[in-house]
């Protein structure tokens, strides 16, 4: 793999995925859409970590362990975030971020 593909190509893919996820998180108006954008960004970070592990320290377990922890934290974040979406939908009858503005000054 390191002979066939340069490290920069993988990092470019991860950067593209991160920017697409950022666009989704900023531009979507539904709360679930924003969470989907955040998941895309976390996946981009994981691609970066695995690429660095494979190219720089292939004999160490640090990179893969870090990815496992990131996936775990992402799962926890998704569970709490979607519970919040459901609670907000119950209270406001909306899943649109722009209408949930009771903290706005």
């Amino acid at each position: 793999m390191p002979n066939a593909i340069p490290l920069e190509a993988l990092l470019a893919v991860a950067a593209a995925l991160f920017c697409i996820g950022l666009f989704g998180a900023l531009a979507r108006r539904s709360m679930v859409g924003v969470l989907m954008g955040i998941e895309l960004m976390l996946n981009a970070v994981n691609i970066n970590l695995i690429a660095f592990w494979r190219y720089l320290t292939p004999s160490s377990t640090g990179g893969q362990t870090f990815v496992i922890f990131v996936i775990t934290v992402a799962a926890a974040e998704a569970a709490v975030g979607l519970a919040l979406v459901i609670a907000i939908y119950r209270a406001w009858q909306t899943s649109n971020i722009d209408e949930v503005d009771s903290l706005k000054g």
Binding site: L26, R28, R29, L35, M36, A74, A78, L82, I86, Y89
Partner: peptide
């Protein structure tokens, strides 16, 4: 996570969402 997301979408589905993007 995808199943969780699909469930959240179906539990908070609105009929007419209007504009879906800023």
């Amino acid at each position: 996570i995808s199943i969780l997301i699909l469930f959240a979408i179906m539990l908070t589905r609105q009929l007419e969402t209007g504009r879906y993007m800023v």
